[in-house]
């Protein structure tokens, strides 16, 4: 809805906060999601994401949500689908070249970005849309990636330790274990709770 879309970019700061909480929750759910299977989770989550975001942002489910870098104004609503700022055809008063009755998505984006904590992200050069991801859940993808990066970091920590104490590893392997912990271990379940 056009009005809600404008509302969203004018309250970009609040939506930024909400999304940060949502993402944090989803990252924390990673062990559960992995056990259930991300595909199954996606089947449930995608319709919810579609409903919420199409109501608030006129989302087109491109699958590569960049709202945090575009002042909470969805760039897929730009008739030219521009991802890196307005074109040169913006009409006086900040209206769209192609749909003169609509506010330019990027004029809204830039003013939305000024209200956000990490609004400076709007100056990052974004790649073209990967059309093969259309219709998939961007929320889940972002959360999964973050969880994976965290897991990799933890893994790196453990292997570094094992390598630093290589004598200990040789004679007393349990003091510096190298093998990844299985999902069902005590350690992993403690990790889930935190």
């Amino acid at each position: 809805m056009y009005r809600l879309r404008l509302f969203a970019s004018r309250h970009s700061r609040s939506f930024e906060r909400i999304y940060t909480l949502l993402e944090g929750a989803m990252v924390a759910m990673d062990p559960v999601f992995r056990r259930v299977g991300y595909r199954r989770v996606e089947a449930v989550l995608t319709p919810i994401e579609r409903l919420v975001k199409s109501l608030l942002f006129d989302c087109r489910m491109c699958g590569q949500c960049v709202l945090s870098s575009t002042g909470m104004s969805c760039p897929m609503n730009c008739p030219k689908g521009l991802r890196n700022g307005p074109c040169g055809g913006v009409r006086p008063g900040g209206f769209c070249e192609v749909k003169p009755q609509m506010r330019c998505v990027w004029v809204e984006a830039w003013s939305g970005a000024t209200r956000m904590r990490h609004g400076e992200q709007i100056s990052i050069v974004l790649p073209p849309v990967d059309h093969s991801l259309k219709g998939s859940s961007a929320w889940l993808r972002a959360a999964r990636e973050k969880a994976e990066v965290r897991r990799a970091a933890k893994e790196a920590q453990r292997t570094t330790l094992a390598r630093a104490f290589d004598d200990a590893r040789e004679h007393e392997p349990s003091s510096a274990p190298l093998a990844p912990e299985p999902e069902t271990s005590v350690e992993a379940s403690r990790e889930r709770r935190t």
């Binding site: 689908g81 890196n84 070249e97 974004l126």
Partner: peptide, 26 residues
């Protein structure tokens, strides 16, 4: 970026806009 197809002599054409000017530069 390019002017939209609606500005030209063949407004029924399919607009592509796979890149935008910035991602094209990169």
């Amino acid at each position: 970026t390019g002017d939209d197809v609606s500005a030209g002599d063949q407004p029924g054409a399919k607009p592509v806009f796979d890149f935008d000017s910035v991602s094209l530069v990169r």
